[in-house]
Structure formats: C-alpha cells, structure tokens
Amino acid sequence: MIKLLILSFLYSGFLWAGPVEQMVAGKRYAELSRYYLSNTKRNFTRKQLILISDALRRQRLFREDIRLNIQLMNKYYKKQHVRLLKDIKASNTIDPDDYPISQKIIYWIIISDYANILTKYEKRSPALEKDYRFFQIFSKMLVDMEFRESKVDKINNKVNNHLEYLTNKVYRFAGSYNLQYVSWQREAILTGPLRDTSLNVTNRGYCLGGDMGMENHLFHFYLDGCFLFGSGGVKSTDSSVEYQQSNVGAYGFKAGPGASLIVSSSKSRIGFKVPVIYTIQRYQNPNSTQFSIEEKSPFSFMTTLFSRFQFGKTYFQTEFGKYIQKEEIFWGLGIGREF
C-alpha cells in the first residue's frame, strides 16, 4: 500500500502533466517545438518554457530559442537586466552575487545559441554583423558577472575564429613587383661533318617583373612574368671538340601561371609555376665553314618550385625548376614588394 502511494506521488506530476511535460517525457522534442511555435502567445509556466527551450535547442532552432529566453528574461529578470546594462554602460563595478544564477544561465543559453547561429554563416553580411553585436553584448554581461568564464572564453574564441575565417577566405587582388638574380640554361648543337656535339650554355643575369592574381588566407593564384637579361658561356660537352665562348649576351622573358599555398600568418608560401621561357642568344659560328651552331627553339616550357618569405610587404623568393622534356635547369633568387 505504501509503495503504491509513493509510486502514485512520484508519477502524479506525469499524470497531471500538460502536453509540454508529456512531450518531454516521451522525448518528442520536434513535436514540442512545433507545438510551442504555433502557440507562442499561450501562457506557459516558467518550468514549461525552460523545457521548451531545451527542446528548441535539441531541434537546432536557435533563433526561436533566443526569442523564448529573452521572453523569460523580460518576464522574470527585467529589472536586474536593465540594471546590469546600465552598470555596464556606466562602467560601474558589478557584483556577480547581485544576480541570480538562473538569470546568468539565460544569458549563457543566449550566447550559446548565437554562437551556433554565427558559426553557420558562410560569408560576412549585415545579418551576421547584427547577430555578432548581440552576441558580444550578452558575452560581455557574462564576463562581467564572472559566470562560466573559461567556457565563455572558449565560445568567444570559436566565434571569433570563425568570423576571421570568413574574412580571410575571401579572395582579393594581389600584385607585386620583383627583381631576381637568375641562372638559366639553353640547348644548342654544334653541327659538324662527322657528328653533332651538344653545347653547354649556362647563363646568369637578372629578371625584372612582377605578378598579379587573387589570394585569400590560404591560396594564391596568379600570373607572373619578367624580362630576362644577362649573359653566359658556351662550351662543347665533348672534350675532343674545342668550342667555347664567354659573355654571350642573352635576353628574353619568362611568364606563366602559378599557384601557392600560404603556410604561415606572415604570408610565406610555397607553390609551383608553369612558365614559358623565351630567350635570344646569338653564338658566334666557328671559323671553319664545316661547322655551324644550331640553336634549338627559343621557347621552352618549365615547371618550377617556388617559395616566398614575407616580411611585411617586402618579400624574398626562390624559384627552382626544370625545362619540360629537356635537361636544362632554371633557378632564381629575388626580392620583391607587394603593391
């Protein structure tokens, strides 16, 4: 008999429960959310509103939950809320003990909801900025009331990191000019009556140019080009054939697309380019009419590995690459500045 009485007492709440309590007991949170949203003007009790708030959050209806909690705050803590806002505005000292825990929990729920909303935005917008303002207001209130400080810090960091990401992911125009010290090779053949001999041509000089493209915090896509000027030596690769020239002038250009991955907050980056290189270089033909110099195509394509080390707007860069389907190598060391 006593057991029956105790059990009846325990379940009396349920037996006498309204629809809200019944839906919560049955874990019908979606149904409860719909019920509330179609009856928002109904006079729910405080306990029911708390249960509905939980259901809304489970259903990820954060904006609706914010409205409900503001309703709760205005109904039960309006005076304290207004006093708090006044004290914050006037930079008065705030005593956390002056405010009930339940009020602080409402603020906590609100900033959690705003955090969930803010981290879902995929780009910055006036709506995001508005939500962020409210997030900051409630976050400041919690900080001043010293409630769940480490959790508030964590949630602030999460939101700020996301907003920073939204800013940084946007591609913007980027351009720079630079000067490189370069060395590049060319193909040439010494043709003779008996056989042809390949010539080793190694040039060094400078390449003046720049790049233009689009970059965000992670990637940089661009076109770059420069004018080559320098000189080089020519020598037969066969020691039995004597042919040599020094300081043969060389001019041309190098241009092509590239892509980089930005690896640090200083905007240092690593990437690759696929430029075409065009050079003009006139070799002196040997004295003997039986021999002549055959120059290969002045155009060559390359793939190069590129890295840039940024110090503010000024940068230092390296480039190292190989001609496609050829043995020749190109490298460059330069400085540049963004504009």
Binding site: R204, G233, V234, W331
Partner: peptide
C-alpha cells in the same frame, strides 16, 4: 642537390 659552376673560361654541365 644541383651544383652549377660559373667560370668566364668555361661552361660545364651541372
């Protein structure tokens, strides 16, 4: 490693 030698009197392969 690629080593390139520069000399006014010769040009050698890397």
């Amino acid at each position: 490693y690629n080593t390139r030698n520069f000399s006014p009197d010769s040009s050698t392969p890397d």
